[in-house]
Nucleic acid binder design. Sequence first.
DNA 1: ACGCTAACCGAAAGCGGTTTCGGAAAGCAA
DNA 2: TTGCTTTCCGAAACCGCTTTCGGTTAGCGT
Lengths: 356, 356
Amino acid sequence: MTSKPVSLKVLAAHLGLTVGTVSRALNNYADISPVTRERVKRAADELGYRANQNARRLSIGNPETVGYLMPRFGNSIAQPFSAQLLQGLGEALSRRSWDLLVVQSDSSKDELAHIERMVRSGRVGGLVISRPAKNDARIRLLQELKCPFVVHGRTASCADYAWYDVDGEDAFVTAVNHLIELGHSRIAFVGAPLQHQFAQDRLNGYTRALEENGLTADPELIQIAEFSDDGGEIATNMLLELSNPPTAVVCLSDTMALGALAAIRAHGLQPGVDVSVIGYDGLKFGVHSNPPLTTMAQPQAHAGRRLGDMLLSIIDGDEPSQHQELRRAHLVRRKTDGPLHLTTAQTNVSNREETT
Amino acid sequence: MTSKPVSLKVLAAHLGLTVGTVSRALNNYADISPVTRERVKRAADELGYRANQNARRLSIGNPETVGYLMPRFGNSIAQPFSAQLLQGLGEALSRRSWDLLVVQSDSSKDELAHIERMVRSGRVGGLVISRPAKNDARIRLLQELKCPFVVHGRTASCADYAWYDVDGEDAFVTAVNHLIELGHSRIAFVGAPLQHQFAQDRLNGYTRALEENGLTADPELIQIAEFSDDGGEIATNMLLELSNPPTAVVCLSDTMALGALAAIRAHGLQPGVDVSVIGYDGLKFGVHSNPPLTTMAQPQAHAGRRLGDMLLSIIDGDEPSQHQELRRAHLVRRKTDGPLHLTTAQTNVSNREETT
DNA sequence: ACGCTAACCGAAAGCGGTTTCGGAAAGCAA
DNA sequence: TTGCTTTCCGAAACCGCTTTCGGTTAGCGT
């Protein structure tokens, strides 16, 4: 279907030169006279010549491409991050005119197979993965394949690979501290299964902050559910129906926090006055929730760009361990954090309503 | 850095065969005896052999890759669709083990340059673009390059290329009709600049529905602003401060609708009772807005998959015009559409407040 | 005039596969 | 045994580009 592009051969013939000469001319070799160099270049873009990249990359032995493993997402409300991250990655790569390949897999098993195929077949020169599991098989695989990679997030043993992460533990420490300063002491944690490292990190921050303030972490107040708004709602329902419900809850993500708000409202309670909630992510949508969601916002803007630059450096030969970047999230107060309102929260426990 | 992968040559040497034989064995040629075929395959995956794709694709003259042009997004709140769409595209492509390249550009000019480079350099065998402008230069370029492509969305003259779109005009007709059935007659349109075809389509639906109901479209009631929540808020503020404000407003997107809700609340009015609003997109977040947003939901789930399949078919030789798919959006009623409340809406006009 | 260096380009060998073609060995019929 | 297919594999060309290596020509000093 596609019209045949002009090759180096026809360009050379057109010029009465050999392919080698033309190639060197286009690549600014010193052994080509300035006049023929210009002549070649003029002819090249008159004929619309573009070097075939498959051929070129085969020849130079460099795929000039990196892969991005899309995180598999359930029914998460939004992945606004993916887009931003891809954009940043693309920026970093385009400065060298490298390409960005996105890869996705259904199961974690064929994700590994995918990775192996990608790197063994020379399709990518590096990979960026995100949301590592606690003992992520992908990381081990990439290490033994000796394939450069960076990870968005990090695991417990992250000493010898490159990563960019925002400190979830720290974030939840400040979130909980903030709630304690507001007078709360029964603070709950709404989380998701702990196979993902970030889920564990944030839980750790929660418990650490409690301990540091001399509060004992009540196991009842730790609710694990599906990583979605529905999960957040279910978990929060459980919490509110406890005999001694929390007066504040920190949520693993803004998405889960939205579910928490729904649950609270459904119980006839008022988020931010009867029970406070703090989310995590800093989704812009949070401005429009009911009421606007207080959250720990992560500096997401430059993640992709940084990740891309790091990966490129490593491919250039840098030691992966030199490229580790930890950012902090910051509290953005909107309307769901408020001072303790003991009476209201403790009385309206038995309301059970349904959200639409 | 990467450890050298085993090539066909070493595999052949290891087996005491020639590369040609090994290649044919792996590709199930009939002129290879079953026993050596199996022997070769066993050895191949024992040694972890993977055909170098650059070499392979160069040889077969097929990039086996399609590109996705990421829509440039300004400060739009989120691109939740991109992720889903990429996922669908990936699915379609992976069934043939084709690759997906994402491309993005800062300006529309180097987007064209990008495209030309991509196809001329044989990096991609096809392209998918989205959100076409009214007379999209990319489409013309791709046509003259004779490069297979599909577009997500469509322009006015869409007869001779392939596209997948949901009928924005129809959607806004049903939205406006719904509002009229609820008793509204002063219905406003909050939109964005009309260079994008979808913005025009939806406006057309708005005006058409008005006409079909014997209502005259009041130019005052058509507000064009930036394509974002802030834009929606600004536009709605203008509307509410009219001497004869609307009692309902349809918004170009859910994101803009969220801004509209904010403006309405800031005027001390109640969305869904004092002034109705209907968005477009069907964002899941709409459930959590204040109040939950009524919207025209588009069937987004399969877009990527369909687009991918279409593109592959066209690359296989199908006529592009055979692959045109128009889907309909459907109304999902939440809480921002309600019957006409004349009194309240007409009196609270002069409130001016600020949102945070 | 000679020799020597520098400037410039052609030739050719890869890169790692695919695919066509031809020929040797094996099978079968006569 | 001869002759003729099959079966199976090796040889080699090719995909389009890069890069090294020589060799020719021009320019220079003497």
